[in-house]
Write a protein that binds this DNA or RNA. Structure first.
Lengths: 210, 210
DNA sequence: CAAGCTTTGTAACAATTGTTACTGTATTGC
DNA sequence: GCAATACAGTAACAATTGTTACAAAGCTTG
């Protein structure tokens, strides 16, 4: 494990901290679609992402949901952080977007490390910052964009995160992520196809313009 | 100054830190409507709110804007925090919602204190957490609620924050905060009045049901 | 108080998004 | 292969929100 951690986090953390991560962390390989965090559950571990991608959604009481942002290599989940440090319930849902490798850190170490390592503190602060900025960008999309532009942005983000132009998903799944209906997505996708921006197939969408 | 800081922050910070705040902080009284943070500007001080309230908005390039949340006594601005620590530009706008008293902390002290004081670290973490949660709640409103419910929530929040049932504002101002048009707000307010939930006057709205 | 400005009310209409219903076509499981 | 299921296309319509336009009422200032 130490090699992969060093590879992805070596430029951030000092050797001593890397060694501690190696000691107390648990390496995990998560398959695409696996639900890492369920709304309402208590979180006992904090994930450091080695490779792959995780999508983080807001889920309300009625089963409505909405994509907040994606996490990539080098990221951690700020909601997890604050749930850990504040011992709150999770207000979110996290699902592996692709096959993902990560290291689970017991929450107990978190507080210890914030005291002990400056690099860890900076990492935590910068994670919070990134997540806050991304959440606000999500607000931008919902508040300032029409559904067609939100859809296009969603497709581009998804293509970027999984490093492919071909997105394997259904219209219904997109509808869930954007909190709208399947019919609306089908309609707008057809419009995008007519404009030559995407190519539609069963269970997959090819983004032609990136 | 020390008395007011101790009064509002005494339960959070140890005496030594309170003393430092007293030494390096600048006490300020801000009138209602004063623009504390402009989008695109660099921030050099971090405000600790003693009393009053500040509203924080997202402002995009085209002059579109949207209310993110209110800050109250005991709060600080997480965006400021991360701007300070990360030396980023502000992506937001902050305006005094009521007459407000606050202490401005030079950003240089921030990092020093995160190393030195555990209580300060916890304060910063908890501020981030609160802001992240509130930002996500704002997403809930925009994504899951219709404009009439958003409007009612806005009115109740505003009444709560300024400790009064009577809100002094114009329909146009509400429209800016909720990023819609004045006509829409007037229309929905009239509906709320017919339902007996609010009473409308020129330049003020009385919220009857809290 | 008269002119000008701000604020609010309202109607008529447009655009966007949401809903229901029904179709056809792939895919899966037996 | 056949039935069941999942997925996508489309139309027709409803609801919500946005836009334009104009009138009336209240405040401000000379």
């Amino acid at each position: 494990m130490i090699k992969e951690i060093k590879n992805k986090y070596g430029h951030l953390f000092e050797d001593e901290l890397l060694e501690e991560i190696n000691q107390v962390g648990t390496f995990k390989e998560i398959p695409e679609g696996f639900e890492l965090i369920k709304p309402g559950s208590y979180i006992k571990f904090m994930p450091l992402i080695i490779s792959g991608a995780i999508k983080v959604l807001r889920g309300d009481h009625d089963g409505d949901e909405l994509l907040l942002y994606f996490l990539e290599q080098g990221d951690t989940c700020a909601m997890t952080l604050s749930c850990c440090l504040g011992h709150h319930k999770s207000e979110i849902k996290a699902i592996a977007e692709t096959d993902t490798k990560l290291v689970m850190i017991p929450i107990k170490k978190m507080e210890e490390w914030t005291t002990k390592y400056k690099s860890w503190r900076n990492f935590v602060f910068s994670s919070y910052h990134k997540r806050l900025v991304e959440t606000i960008e999500t607000i931008d999309s919902i508040a300032f964009l029409n559904m067609d532009d939100r859809l296009l942005k969603y497709l581009k983000d998804k293509a970027k995160i999984s490093h492919t132009k071909i997105i394997n998903t259904t219209h219904q799944q997109i509808a869930y992520d954007l909190h709208t209906s399947r019919v609306v997505i089908s309609r707008l996708l057809k419009k995008l196809e007519k404009k030559g921006i995407v190519k539609l197939n069963r269970n997959n969408i090819e983004v032609l313009e990136l």
